[in-house]
Design a protein around this nucleic acid. Structure first.
Lengths: 350, 350
DNA sequence: GTGATGAATGATAGCGCAATCATTTGTCAA
DNA sequence: TTGACAAATGATTGCGCTATCATTCATCAC
């Protein structure tokens, strides 16, 4: 195997201190609050740290100081593209900081989430980022008592546990559905998988848009608790069309479903957008380059991760945001899948 | 912030011990090696742990025992669907264990990876999982000296640092390309993004298959170091067709590229599979339900994550695998995108 | 010159746990 | 009964760091 054993393992603060000719605590200070130490000592210590290739032991540090650099992140799933984009934002934002990310999956289960909050609490995290606003009561109360900044992401609501970065799923869905209506679609369906609380709020936005336009949604909503997938999107479109053969568009609760619906339309020779309109949700990269390109609601997932981290960093510095709830908004990306060449009916509001 | 401070924080081993009427070390033993303690004490301690809702302090434990439950995971990217599937396998496999996953992104950079290995080393991990076999020399040597199980994933090679779970990218690509050739395609292109070492090996598999069939690949390979995306796949297909208008198929170095190529074919009214064949790599879920469905090489990503963890768990139990390199293989998923209805030429080997 | 003040540095203790060794208790053969 | 031995439990110590308090020294007003 390797050449020598035990490399710089076992290099401790005192080793560095000895080499620099100072006390251990001074080394600790140079590493954590350099401005407390005079420039010349600071320099000497830094040289010794380099020379010995010293790295502090995070466990010892945590034990002595009763806190860690760990930011706990609770998301439902790592494979969901939406959350992995958020996650990347989080990692990007912690890049040059001393913060460590500790990730855990709730698997869309509130009980699991509560368990994980309890575990994180025992680690004295520097901050917490949790997806959504639907924690259990016990979970919320633990997060509140945590004595570290807590950011809820993905959604906004008037009563954050501490801080929030997100957007209104209701408004986003309403906007997308309204767009379909304005483009002349009259029998607009809804395809919803997973049906977690976020999806529920999108469903409500969809219904609100139809109601505002005086349109009915009876039988036009196909939902399932099954996990979302492209294949499922195709199946659900099939279900919709057998249930409501006159459906002329769908708002899909996410882009996977919308993609599946598109492929299913291709398979059935159902022309998109003229015979059938499709709108998705999240605007994953692919939506812009499908054929036809797919309308979707762009959500600022990467930015959401970044902002969550910078809120935590600021809070650790004592800088509280003016308003604890940050609404990142959304953007309707109008593309070919809802761009009817001929408006099939008359009373379209401009 | 919250209402009250300091909740059950501060419950320590000795608190539990006092309540159970035993010594602290006995509580520690009940929690870590229950069979060392007599059944009745064990029971009493467990009751006390429950009653006080005790959770051990991982920092103290790490400091005292000079090791952690942390398995360090080094992957190039969290947003890449391939790695997020592996990651899910890893999380799934650690579900009911005491292991914690600590994830870090190398961003496809060897130097970054080396830095991260150094950081992990200072945390005395219980195990390490690293993607690929192309670590820097220093990185490899650190991993070797780490005194914990190390699993390289995604690839196989004759000289693992410690253990390995993966498959041959060369063989997988050769098989896919050979499949195109056998189905009558003669001017088979290659679309490669990212061009990291894994992609390079796939490229070599592609060339080997063409060479074996006596076919040329001059000008048929389009590669870029840019990150892979569906949009890019469409662009690269365009590049290929302007460079080699007679190309009649592509092997794409991953599924994103293949999807982009498919959409581009639809846009150009280039019939798939008759006029043009497409094969992808990884077989993400969507490939089976596109129109036409896309041929791809299925790789066992989730299983790779699971196996990596179980190799580590076994190694921690002292159980070394018979062979340190586990080849999970791959599976060619033949679908419509390479299923020519009429074979356009004669000399096809059966 | 004196004492007050503050900046820079050091000495000491202890965070909560597990390694180590010591002690107690029970069991069994001779 | 005795001693040997193993199983169960406990006492002590220290992991590497930082909080806290103490000390030193320079500076300055008076």
């Amino acid at each position: 195997m390797g050449k020598k054993q035990r490399q710089n393992k076992g290099i401790t603060l005192s080793d560095v201190a000895a080499r620099a000719g100072v006390s251990a605590i001074t080394v600790s200070r140079v590493l954590r609050r350099p401005q407390m130490v005079s420039p010349d000592l600071r320099e000497r210590v830094k040289v010794a740290v380099e020379a010995l290739n010293y790295l502090p032991d995070p466990a010892a540090s945590a034990l002595a100081s009763k806190r860690t650099n760990v930011v706990g992140v609770l998301i439902p799933s790592v494979t969901n593209q939406v959350f992995s984009a958020v996650l990347r934002g989080i990692y990007d934002a912690t890049e040059e900081t001393s913060l460590d990310i500790q990730l855990a999956n709730t698997r869309y289960r509130i009980a699991e989430e509560e368990k994980l909050i309890r575990i994180f609490r025992s680690q004295k995290p520097a901050g917490m980022i949790v997806a959504g606003i639907d924690q259990s009561e016990a979970g919320k109360s633990m997060l509140q008592d945590l004595d570290c900044p807590v950011v809820q992401i993905m959604e906004i609501s008037p009563d954050p546990i501490d801080m929030m970065v997100g957007f209104s799923h209701f408004e986003a869905a309403r906007t997308a559905t309204d767009h379909l209506v304005r483009n002349g679609y009259r029998r607009v369906g809804f395809l919803g998988a997973r049906m977690d609380p976020r999806t529920q709020r999108r469903y409500e936005g969809y219904r609100a848009a139809l109601a505002a336009a005086g349109l009915d949604h009876q039988g036009l909503a196909i939902t399932t608790v099954a996990a979302s997938s492209v294949t499922l999107g195709g199946q659900m479109l099939g279900d919709l069309l057998s249930q409501c053969p006159d459906a002329d568009a769908v708002f899909c609760n996410n882009d996977d479903i919308a993609l599946g619906a598109l492929f299913e339309c291709q398979r059935r020779r159902l022309g998109v957008p003229d015979a059938f309109g499709i709108a998705g949700f999240n605007d994953i990269e692919m939506m812009a380059c499908t054929y036809p390109s797919l309308t979707s609601v762009r959500t600022h997932r990467h930015e959401m991760g970044r902002r969550a981290v910078s809120l935590i960093i600021d809070a650790l510095d004592g800088k509280r945001p003016e308003h604890p709830v940050v609404d990142l908004g959304f953007q309707l990306m109008e593309r070919d899948s809802t761009r009817r060449s001929r408006r099939l009916d008359i009373g379209v509001r401009s």
